[in-house]
């Protein structure tokens, strides 16, 4: 950042700012497509673009370790979990027809009806009102605040690890216990054991005992990534 004056202006953006704004626009567009597309798998894939854009923003903010954690956890495992969830719940996948096909409009409307609920316009009004209010407040509050991204790296792996294991050890360990509990809970919730949960599912033997079937079921191993 060129510190000719104490207050760098809006009219002389630095390279980092330009890249940040461009990546931000791409991220925002990907997020909008994520919440508006009527194809469910496309929504998960556009989420990858949005999360990757946020990882690039972390890199631009010199938080390198968080950027790579973001790529590993979100893009790597959360999106895979979401795709598995979409496939396991038999999400309504509308057959794609070319644009000139006579049933194109009907199929599109059906897909939109399956993905979006009826309160789309109130939701849009709420989101726009919240965006207008928050953008006004945030821009007014931080009009004269600048981040110095040139002086030193704030979030390299060394800095983050030092801080995390010197000052935040107890929350870190508590978080590992929480992750273990979530893992066990996800396995228990999603396995096809028991007399009542296995009945509407397909291909489960009824004589498996009262809720204590021993094999964890085919869906249990998938949850371990979470």
């Amino acid at each position: 950042m060129t510190l000719a004056a104490a207050h760098p202006g809006f009219l002389s953006p630095t390279g980092v700012e330009i890249v940040f704004v461009l990546v931000g626009i791409a991220t925002l567009a990907a997020a909008v497509v994520t919440v508006t597309t009527s194809k469910l798998v496309h929504a998960a894939l556009w989420l990858v673009a949005a999360l990757g854009g946020i990882a690039v923003e972390y890199l631009l903010l010199t938080a390198e370790f968080i950027a790579w954690v973001q790529v590993l956890i979100y893009v790597g495992s959360v999106v895979v979990l979401l795709l598995f969830g979409l496939m396991l719940t038999k999400a309504p996948i509308v057959p794609t027809v070319p644009r000139g096909h006579p049933s194109y409009g009907a199929l599109r409307a059906e897909a939109r009806e399956a993905a979006d609920s009826g309160n789309r316009w109130p939701a849009l009004a709420v989101a726009l009102a919240a965006a207008a209010t928050l953008v006004t407040v945030v821009v007014d509050a931080f009009r004269s605040s600048w981040i110095d991204v040139d002086r030193s790296v704030q979030g390299s792996a060394g800095v983050t690890g030092e801080v995390l294991f010197q000052h935040w050890v107890l929350p870190f360990e508590a978080l590992s216990v929480l992750l273990l509990a979530a893992l066990v809970g996800a396995i228990i919730l999603s396995r096809k054991g028991g007399a009542d949960a296995g009945e509407p599912a397909q291909g489960t033997e009824p004589g498996q005992g009262a809720g204590q079937g021993e094999q964890p079921g085919p869906t249990a191993g998938r949850e371990e990534q979470g």
């Binding site: 991220t27 979409l86 399956a114 993905a115 928050l134 953008v135 945030v138 821009v139 931080f142």
Partner: peptide, 28 residues
Amino acid sequence: MHLAYPAVLAVLLFCVGIYGVLARRNAI
């Protein structure tokens, strides 16, 4: 870098998320 850029981007992403939570029908 101006602080308003990441703050405004975060606000807009949050509002996109609000719209998605309110308007979507599928739980995933």
